[in-house]
Design a protein around this nucleic acid. Structure first.
Lengths: 217, 217
DNA sequence: CGGCCCTTTGACGGACGTCAAATAGCGTGG
DNA sequence: CCACGCTATTTGACGTCCGTCAAAGGGCCG
């Protein structure tokens, strides 16, 4: 949990919290039950998503250690999202009211909060751009690079390799593609010597080329 | 500007502001120049979008009278977005610092702000779901319905017909499609008797069926 | 009248989805 | 340890939705 985005809250708030351990594939928050608690991920990976009745699903973000589920729901409850553990997850739940009271007495924390808000908004904008206007290759390459970047900030990368517990259906749901197509693209990436994936770990072999494929910057 | 989302700020804030008139097709805010001013639309339609170097563009939201450009950039500047007038637009620009000072002294306004934040976040989630997981027909139908709903809140619908100044390329950029395909889908919608569009105005002929096409609820 | 942008339409192509079958992992229980 | 059942991954054939390209017509304005 080093250098993560939500340190300013996880580390500093002396507020009632309770710890939980959720096994992989179990849901952490149901779309209805966004009521009074705000979870922060302490260990493991999770996904925050929205789903249609017929099963189509869109992952909005992956949650890594230190991440708040969404800063937008800090002050007001927000519904419709499902948060689901990808690996076994340890999380801590804060009660919203305590957190709110605490925050409103510290303007400089609100400043920090609004910075985080802007970041989150920017992420959302980029997601829309990706889904609306980028090709499958670009989307997947960008997803890998952005995860690598976030993991690096948390010291969760050694050399060029990192833990990578995502299933291809997670990647598919995050990029608006099908698992089959994801498999094909990842296959090409590996055959082209851009990355290597095995046993739940990913290595960036040719980061430069991967960035080119991602149209990165 | 009746019943619009940002009334709580546009109507109540006694803060320095300046009025501007921007002709159609002109840009209101450049991606770089998000510095110190926050525009609110008073009259006309605008679009807020992000673009890639090669010209691919994604519209993130349409701005109607009363709309703030984005609540996320109220307290902190945010860059990367372009705001562009669709019709002639009258807008008012507030200076961020004044607004900030004003808000921080009124906790109940901050509450209101955070409610708006949640709404905006929910919109963003739905946009991602649309772009990632819905068909062209669904996306277009939903866009029309959501605009109709927003216009209705502003008393800008008479009967079932409303001003509708969007060009098909706006719809395309908002839905992640091409203008050509938008034309085909709108053609089908009209031939199927769902809507009628002419001379920059739109009439809902068969709203029920349109909702079905949109998979609306 | 001429130029520009928008819209419509059709033919064609390509990116991605669907379906299906084969293989590989992986955890569980014997 | 093996057997098993489940879930992931891979691969190929095929289909479809949507994009591309091009041409023609319409509306608007100088």
């Amino acid at each position: 949990m080093i250098g993560s985005e939500a340190d300013w809250i996880a580390g500093t708030v002396p507020v009632t919290s309770s710890n939980h351990i959720i096994p992989a594939r179990r849901t952490i928050c149901h779309p209805k039950e966004w009521s009074d608690f705000i979870p922060i991920i302490c260990r493991g990976w999770a996904a925050s998503s929205v789903t249609l009745l017929d099963g189509r699903r869109q992952i909005l973000s992956f949650l890594l250690p230190g991440d708040l589920v969404s800063t937008a729901c800090l002050l007001e409850p927000m519904s419709g999202r499902t948060v689901e553990a990808i690996t076994d997850v340890t999380c801590r739940k804060f009660t919203r009211n305590d957190l709110k009271a605490y925050l409103f007495q510290r303007p400089q924390l609100l400043e920090k909060l609004s910075k985080t808000w802007v970041e989150e908004r920017t992420q959302a904008d980029q997601l829309a751009l990706d889904l609306g206007r980028r090709t499958a290759d670009e989307r997947i390459a960008r997803l890998i690079l952005s995860l690598a970047e976030r993991l690096a900030k948390r010291n969760m990368v050694s050399g060029q390799t990192m833990e990578f517990p995502l299933r291809q259906r997670h990647i598919a749901d995050a990029t608006g593609l099908t698992p089959v197509h994801v498999s094909k693209v990842l296959g090409e990436f590996q055959r082209a010597g851009l990355v290597e994936i095995n046993r739940r770990s990913l290595t960036l072999i040719n980061e430069k080329e991967l960035r080119r494929a991602a149209d990165w910057r």
